[in-house]
Design a protein around this nucleic acid. Structure first.
Lengths: 218, 218
DNA sequence: AGTCGATTTAAGGTAGCTGTAAGGTTTTCG
DNA sequence: CGAAAACCTTACAGCTACCTTAAATCGACT
């Protein structure tokens, strides 16, 4: 199939082709692909019914492809929870772009792709190499410190509740780590704050949680 | 504008309309909308350039709308990191479905408890970071103040009874906190009202409760 | 087994949020 | 008009949530 070749060339791999609805459904269930491309017209039924079946057990991304471009079809497809709906004929390149757009939203945590480094005044925090640059020196970050900073940075300029923070670092059964977390916060402050006792970047919001202030450069 | 009315009816609120690229850009920066709808053809430039500017500082969702449906345009828009590209004319209903599809992917990710920010005249109340921006300063909100504002914002422009408010903040056995609540309301007013003694945003409705006035128009 | 760094526990200390209370003002209603 | 009810305003004391430090424990590597 043309499209498949193209997708493969674009870096998509692990591509499954299904001959009929039943095999497509079971493939979605067992292979758990990252995204599904469904044709509305299928030899044994329509893609809408198939999507309904998929939605019974999965919220996976789905893109419809169809020769039928009627308004009702598009509304129906999108209304069933599809992520996009393309009408044939279309450029393979556009398909790739749309797939990429969807995958970007679904599988990258909001800021994971730019999990590189950020600046706090004079200091530069490098999450990818787990160090803090300050005064021409490099302070290493420990594993826990790093995990906490990642979580805080993901929600920078917003409050992260102590619960959410503990859960992100110690897992679901994180009850009882609040104190431990506080100690780590203190250590982090000693590395990123000019004056750890009067924080200006990693603030505590009494009764709510912590907040990492990062000025976005224009 | 037609579309705006339709979106509002569909439950979208806090809608900003920008007259030109510059104001759109600054609105994206300061108002931090959940999603942006850009027209490719703008009075002072094109939407592509605008998206590039936005992508400098934000990964926010963007949907293009255009009278130009050429292949190159669509490829360009999607290639720049847009989430979707719709060609006019289109059904308002489809716009809503596509917006919803994008928002579902972006904000159902772990982070978002979907607390937003809103504007009260000159002030901007940011619930996600628990601050009130006014006169180039940031007034922090305490935990209780924050909880009260969340409840009031959930029922903005409608009356919230004192009972309901207390229950939302202090739990089910909240009898006897009416006075306490009043004190907190006063403190909130000192942060969000131009003149706390003559409130215009957080109104008391004698005998019934309180009401937070939030103009959705910009 | 021994060492060293990372992590956790524990205990004492403190700032500032929260609630209480008392007196004032405005509205309602007999 | 007068009194009661509803709400406002202010100040202050207590306590909770958080800080800080030091010591104990864990874990990896030799």
């Amino acid at each position: 199939m043309m499209i498949e070749r193209f997708l493969r060339k674009e870096g998509f791999f692990r591509i499954y082709l299904a001959a009929d609805s039943a095999s497509a459904l079971s493939s979605c269930r067992t292979d758990k692909p990252d995204i599904a491309i469904l044709d509305v017209m299928l030899p044994d039924g329509d893609g809408f019914a198939l999507l309904s079946s998929i939605r019974q057990f999965s919220d996976m991304p789905v893109l419809f492809v169809s020769a039928r471009g009627e308004d009702e079809d598009r509304l129906l497809g999108l209304g069933l929870g599809a992520d996009d709906y393309m009408v044939k004929p279309f450029l393979p390149r556009e398909l790739v772009l749309r797939l990429t757009a969807i995958l970007k939203r679904v599988y990258s945590s909001p800021v994971a792709d730019r999990l590189s480094s950020f600046r706090l005044g004079e200091q530069i925090v490098r999450l990818d190499s787990a160090v803090v640059e300050r005064d021409q020196a490099e302070l290493p970050l420990t594993a826990k410190e790093h995990a906490i900073l990642v979580k805080l940075y993901e929600s920078r300029n917003r409050i992260v509740t102590s619960d959410a923070l503990c859960q992100a670092v110690w897992g679901d059964d994180s009850y009882g780590y609040e104190n431990t977390c506080m100690v780590h916060i203190r250590r982090i402050r000693e590395k990123i704050e000019p004056d750890p006792s009067n924080p200006v970047y990693l603030l505590t919001v009494r009764g709510l949680g912590y907040k990492l202030l990062v000025k976005e450069h224009s």
